[in-house]
């Protein structure tokens, strides 16, 4: 099994009883760690304290928690003002509203002046489920990665989300962190490496490179396992640091495999896969398939139904891999 030992993945990686947690839990845990470490850390929340998991921070550091009400535009700009006065604000809402509703305030008051604000977008992707399309944010990666000065992190499980939250709080500058509502397998461990600007190779193979971010990284690993049964060896890369992107690791994998599949629970247009294509177009053109929402909005349903309907699961990654391999010269 060519799982990369250095990735220190869970021993229960493919076990039926692999523990599952929503990535947003990692955000809550990360905030608690940061809050204890640095008293400049403050949390602003737009009326979604429990569901964005900032309630634990609120309980532990009530004097550093700010209830904003349903006011996402001022949420961003007020946080920017606090950062100008030396605070390290995290702003928490659903991704549809922040950065969905307040993109201009993020651009003007956070990205352009590089204020030290961290934007946490909860309930991203179609796996939000029954709430339907209005609450399933699929355009946020595209919206945020085009902003100069913005770091964009899409961690793959609850443990990595905690690490990403802490790393965001410890770096200076604007960061967007994206997480999901639904439980997903916790397949990394405490020892798994995480660093902003670094992609992690989870599995090595020379036939196709599958580059994924967010909870769908697990689907990419399942797809690689299925491909192996068919004699196809895939590299799987966890590309959690969408921006800055680890161009060295991604280029090396593309050059070795000469065929790429990208996987994300977001619009295929403009997302992480597009960022990979931008790199490959100038450095190493090769066949690429982008798994993601194909210019459509989500709808109500169970998370699983929706992931399958929009072709975001392992069997669809397998098919995409087979297509790009066929296109290789």
């Amino acid at each position: 099994m060519p799982i990369n030992a250095a990735a220190k993945l869970s021993r229960k990686l493919f076990a039926k009883d692999i523990p599952e947690l929503p990535t947003r839990n990692g955000f809550g845990d990360g905030l608690l760690l940061l809050g204890a470490k640095n008293e400049k850390v403050v949390v602003l929340c737009a009326d979604l304290t429990e569901s964005t998991r900032v309630d634990a921070f609120k309980k532990a550091f009530p004097e550093r928690f700010v209830q904003m009400g349903v006011s996402e535009q001022s949420l961003a700009a007020i946080a920017a003002g606090m950062a100008l006065a030396g605070k390290i604000p995290f702003i928490a809402s659903y991704a549809c509203f922040s950065p969905g509703r307040n993109w201009e305030q993020i651009r003007t008051t956070i990205a352009l002046p590089e204020t030290n604000v961290k934007i946490a977008g909860a309930h991203s992707g179609v796996s939000v489920g029954p709430d339907g399309a209005t609450h399933q944010m699929t355009e946020d990666i595209a919206l945020m990665r085009v902003l100069p000065n913005m770091t964009v992190l899409v961690p793959c499980d609850a443990i990595e989300t905690r690490k990403a939250t802490v790393a965001a709080g410890e770096m200076h500058g604007p960061v967007y962190i994206r997480f999901a509502r639904e439980k997903s397998p916790v397949f990394t461990t405490e020892k798994s490496p995480f660093a902003i600007g670094k992609a992690n190779i989870l599995r090595t193979g020379n036939d196709v490179a599958i580059i994924a971010c967010g909870p769908l990284v697990y689907e990419a690993l399942l797809a690689a396992r299925d491909l192996a049964k068919m004699g196809v060896e895939a590299t799987v890369i966890n590309n959690a640091s969408v921006k800055p992107m680890d161009e060295v690791t991604i280029l090396a994998a593309a050059k070795r495999c000469k065929a790429v599949v990208t996987v994300e629970e977001a619009q295929a247009a403009g997302g992480m896969g597009s960022a990979v294509c931008e790199l490959l177009a100038s450095e190493f053109p090769c066949p690429v398939e982008r798994i993601g929402l194909q210019d459509v909005f989500g709808q109500s349903g169970t998370p699983r139904e929706l992931l399958e309907h929009y072709r975001l699961t392992a069997p669809w990654i397998v098919k995409a891999a087979q297509r790009v391999i066929k296109m290789k010269r």
Partner: peptide, 25 residues
């Protein structure tokens, strides 16, 4: 200059955030 502005409406929030932080401290 203190703040970046131009897109109308954003400055009052930035100032409110700074005043809030000042009050905290």
């Amino acid at each position: 200059l203190e703040n970046t502005s131009g897109p109308l409406g954003d400055g009052s929030s930035q100032a409110a955030g700074t005043a809030y932080a000042a009050k905290m401290d």
